[in-house]
Design a protein around this nucleic acid. Structure first.
Lengths: 197, 197
DNA sequence: TTGCGCAAATGCAAAATTGCAGGGATGCAA
DNA sequence: TTGCATCCCTGCAATTTTGCATTTGCGCAA
């Protein structure tokens, strides 16, 4: 098994047994059969390993795949879709999924990590959204000065939607298919935006 | 001078001279005349000290003052106002203001700290927003299950607006009065929301 | 087989962060 | 004055995190 996968497995197993606070990097590393230093070659923090969070390489291919449908006025759906593509693997991976849901349910603070993950990649994501806006008829007339802040706002909005959706999903028992989170997030966003006008 | 103020002054001065990376807690503490351990009694991190970030006690009085005008449909304005009241002191304090702007301009990553600050206080803020929504005619019919996610979304949206406004303000030279950031943030939010409908 | 080159893994040291326990000043009540 | 509670500060140890230099293992070409 890959080193990364072994570290994730170890982090999840030990956290399930002892709780996030009690788990040490040393213990996780040892269980995974690597040195503690190696742990940090794969994850930025203990929490990242527990949740299976890792930075995604936002290649052109990746962006093209997830922003493809935004040839019209589907910007919100595209952005939530992109974000879900980034965090999805961590909660849809069947092997660790159930344990992770369990862990988050008793340790909701861990979800805060999603925020920092998006923050870390914010620059790239904002650029991608900026490009997206040019193709949305509702935004294509923005002058470049406003496009950047607008893209940041959209990122914040959609991140919030996705996080709220995940939170809700976990609280409700996470029995519905995880893939629906994407639609739920977009629906939450649309719902809220409509009420604001 | 208060210990907290001395620590802020020391952090800003040393950062201005050497850059954020080079500054050590030891150096800041020594310059402030306290032990390194005391530093962490006041701030959660080096960045927090540089930016003058500290958790605000969200008392009933504080909330009442900043949410007062939300007796009607001014939810966005109220929330951005509340958030600005939290971060405002750090950038409006005349003593350190100029230096901080300078520092952020060459180290934009520091603004990410705003996000974690709001994340830390998210629970309380979301509760306050939830109460606010009940008084906004556009939201008062929400069933309690949806009120919480909606409040989270609003927080994310307004935080994003404020952060974008601050970023823009710094980039533009931060010559306009800082108090206008509040309106600018709300305007950005309204602008974006309107285009989405 | 030998040697080269790369990526992964490691060791080490410095710095950041946190929990816990204690120490000293200050003010207030008996 | 004495005793007590409280707040601020401190010391110390364990853990986390990062930067830098080095080593190891493996495939691949000569």
């Amino acid at each position: 098994m890959e080193t990364r996968a072994r570290l994730e497995e170890a982090a999840v197993a030990l956290t399930l047994r002892d709780g996030p606070e009690q788990v040490t990097i040393d213990a996780v590393s040892e269980r995974a059969g690597v040195s503690p230093r190696t742990f940090f070659n794969y994850f930025d923090s203990k929490e990242d390993a527990i949740l299976g969070i890792h930075d995604v390489e936002l290649t052109d291919d990746f962006l093209a795949e997830h922003l493809a449908r935004a040839d019209g006025a589907e910007t919100v759906e595209s952005v939530t879709g992109l974000l879900f593509a980034i965090i999805g693997p961590a909660i849809t991976d069947p092997a660790l999924h159930e344990s992770r849901v369990q862990i988050i349910k008793s340790n909701p603070q861990l979800l805060g990590r999603q925020v920092s993950q998006f923050t870390r990649m914010a620059g790239q994501i904002v650029d991608a959204i900026t490009a997206l806006l040019a193709r949305d008829p509702r935004f294509s007339d923005l002058d470049p000065n406003n496009a950047q802040p607008t893209a940041e706002l959209l990122l914040a909005l959609c991140s919030g939607g996705l996080r709220a959706a995940v939170k809700e999903w976990i609280a409700a028992g996470s029995d519905s298919p995880a893939a629906e989170l994407e639609q739920r997030a977009a629906a939450l966003v649309r719902q809220t935006v409509e009420r604001l006008t």
